[in-house]
């Protein structure tokens, strides 16, 4: 497979996964605020924190009002990680490789983009409600369904899954990191109904509430962490994502499990082993933030290694001089 095609498949998937996560984060946060009296800027700043774009936001907006945060994360074209920007980049990548992806994938993604382009012409306040975020999420999920239903399980499909899984692991870890830090000091909520509401919203941010309840029934912070970091079968748990990424990477290269031929395999293998042999007690003892922070750094390094190993060409320049970025 052409390196450039693999690169675009990988990034197309990452951008769509990113758009879906951002939409869910906002939607869940919005609903959570309705349950909390006097929910102010404190409830919206974690979203910016989790996006990793604090500097850009502070410079251009300043105040963490709901309106500012929602606009920044949805339709702001200057924010490369807004839903609209992600969708535009996913579609640009798809357009580069239109001959490779299936017609159904392209038509869906293009229709999704055209819809978003229409929305972007209206004021954010009138567009970005629950229905909008639901549409973004289901459109992303529908794309995944079409991908799975129309594309052969070859190298291309595995590059898509590799990108998707790494993006998802990154998003889960960022959200958990920020929320855990944000929620724990709120001692006044401990033992109140809000405690439950707040932790439930963390799970909802990862579509994890129902699966969590089946497994643990009651909500407790340490079990939430255990579920989102270490669960092997929940599709948004970090451990699961890394397992799937490893399978796809090895399907691409043909290298047997637990051995490596390049930096990408080495880094991913190490990360997987670390998660394979962790438990929640150890994680909490060493500090969740330390673990998650380290994990994000490792994911970044892994992304670079994948790029060096398989794509190895200059990043694309598109309109406005933007290129694919982690």
């Amino acid at each position: 497979m052409l390196s450039r095609v693999a690169d675009s498949l990988y990034w197309m998937s990452r951008y769509l996964e990113r758009a879906e996560n951002v939409a869910r984060f906002i939607d869940v946060n919005y609903h959570m605020c309705l349950d909390i009296p006097d929910a102010g800027p404190d409830q919206w700043s974690p979203l910016i924190n989790a996006s990793g774009d604090m500097e850009d936001f502070s410079r251009r907006y300043g105040e963490f009002s709901r309106e500012n945060v929602v606009h920044f994360l949805t339709l702001d074209m200057e924010n490369p990680n807004s839903i609209y920007s992600c969708l535009m980049m996913a579609r640009e990548n798809a357009r580069w490789i239109r001959q490779f992806i299936t017609l159904e994938m392209w038509e869906h993604l293009n229709g999704f983009y055209l819809m978003m382009k229409e929305s972007s012409k209206k004021p954010t306040e009138s567009v970005a409600g629950h229905e909008f975020f639901m549409t973004v999420m289901t459109s992303c999920q529908l794309f995944l369904g079409i991908l799975d239903g129309t594309m052969s399980r070859g190298e291309g499909w595995h590059f898509c899954r590799l990108g998707r899984m790494l993006e998802r692991a990154d998003k889960t870890s960022r959200m958990l990191d920020v929320k855990y830090f944000h929620l724990l000091p709120e001692v006044s909520y401990v033992g109140t109904p809000y405690d439950d509401i707040l932790w439930a919203s963390v799970l909802r941010s990862m579509s994890a509430l129902e699966m969590y309840r089946k497994r643990y029934h009651q909500i407790s912070p340490s079990q939430v962490v255990e579920f989102l970091v270490l669960d092997r079968s929940f599709p948004r748990a970090i451990h699961h994502c890394i397992m799937m990424a490893d399978i796809s990477l090895r399907a691409i290269s043909g290298t047997p499990t637990a051995t490596f031929h390049n930096k990408a395999e080495q880094r991913l293998g190490k990360l997987l082993a670390e998660l394979d042999y962790s438990n929640i007690e150890e994680i909490l003892e060493c500090g969740l933030h330390e673990l998650l922070d380290g994990l994000q750094k490792k994911l970044n390094a892994l992304g670079n290694a994948i790029s060096e190993t398989f794509f190895a060409i200059q990043p694309f320049k598109v309109a406005g001089g933007r290129s694919n970025t982690q």
Partner: peptide
């Protein structure tokens, strides 16, 4: 796409030892 062949750009190709090659994974 209709022919099921690769769509290549100049930067995907190099001429190596007199042969035209494309950069793949």
């Amino acid at each position: 796409k209709q022919m099921g062949v690769d769509l290549v750009e100049g930067r995907d190709l190099i001429v190596d030892d007199g042969w035209v090659m494309m950069r793949t994974t």
